[in-house]
Simulated scan of single mutants.
Amino acid sequence: MHVDMPIVELYKYEGKSPLPVDFDQYWDRALQELKQQSLDYQLVESDFKSQVADCYHLYFTGVGGAKVHAKYVRPKENLSTGQGVVMFHGYYGDSGDWLDKIAYAAEGITVMALDCRGQAG
């Protein structure tokens, strides 16, 4: 077994980039800004139709006034379990196709797939 440093030192190791001095202040400011944020959302029915789910485009105003989009897939009422999944895509650009969310809805799980800001528009 290969270990970079003795186990006693690993318990104290804080990484190469220690916590910024203003870490708590930053998050205090950010959370205050979030509390002031209006939900200001719009739910628009999608053209994509399914026998197991209702599909919507969800638009809302994010922090700093940014317009944010997500795909919202809700199981038909008789299937819903009350469970949910929030998806964040990687660098490939957007929340993907509706179809890959339908499998969750078929199991009674609600899905919100967010289009991350700054990724492919």
Rank of each mutant, 00 (worst) to 15 (best):
E33H: 07
D40A: 14
K71W: 00
A105I: 04
R74T: 03
G62Y: 06
D94S: 11
S46T: 00
A103G: 08
Y92T: 14
H2R: 13
E107S: 14
H69I: 00
D22A: 13
D94I: 05
I7T: 10
E45C: 02
L114D: 09
V85Q: 04
V52W: 05
Q42P: 03
S46L: 03
K71I: 04
M5P: 05
T81L: 05
W98I: 05
A120G: 11
L58Q: 07
A30C: 07
E9G: 05
F60T: 01
E45W: 01
L99N: 15
D22K: 10
L43R: 12
K71D: 03
A120S: 14
H2W: 11
L114A: 12
A103Q: 11
K12W: 06
K76P: 03
H69V: 02
M112N: 07
S38M: 09
A106H: 05
S50I: 08
D28R: 14
N78C: 02
C55E: 06
V111G: 01
Q51L: 05
G121N: 15
Y11P: 04
A106C: 07
R117W: 15
D22M: 08
W27F: 15
A105G: 08
D94P: 01
D100F: 09
Y91S: 09
G90Q: 06
Q36Y: 12
Y26I: 13
L10V: 12
L99S: 15
F60P: 03
L114N: 11
Q32R: 11
A120N: 14
A113T: 03
I109C: 03
I102K: 01
D4W: 10
W27N: 12
C55Y: 00
E33A: 10
V52T: 07
G64H: 10
P75W: 00
R29H: 11
H57C: 02
A113L: 07
L43G: 04
A105Q: 06
A103F: 09
G62M: 06
D24W: 09
A66L: 13
S38P: 07
Y26T: 11
Y13M: 04
F88H: 06
M1A: 09
Y72R: 02
G121V: 11
D40L: 09
Q83P: 02
M5V: 05
C116M: 15
V52R: 03
D94A: 02
Q83K: 12
G121A: 14
S80H: 05
Y26R: 13
L34D: 12
D100A: 00
V8W: 11
E107G: 12
Y56F: 13
G15D: 08
Q36L: 15
H89T: 07
K35Y: 11
E33N: 10
V73T: 01
S17D: 13
H89C: 08
D28V: 10
V52Y: 05
Q51F: 03
V3Q: 10
T110Q: 06
K76R: 07
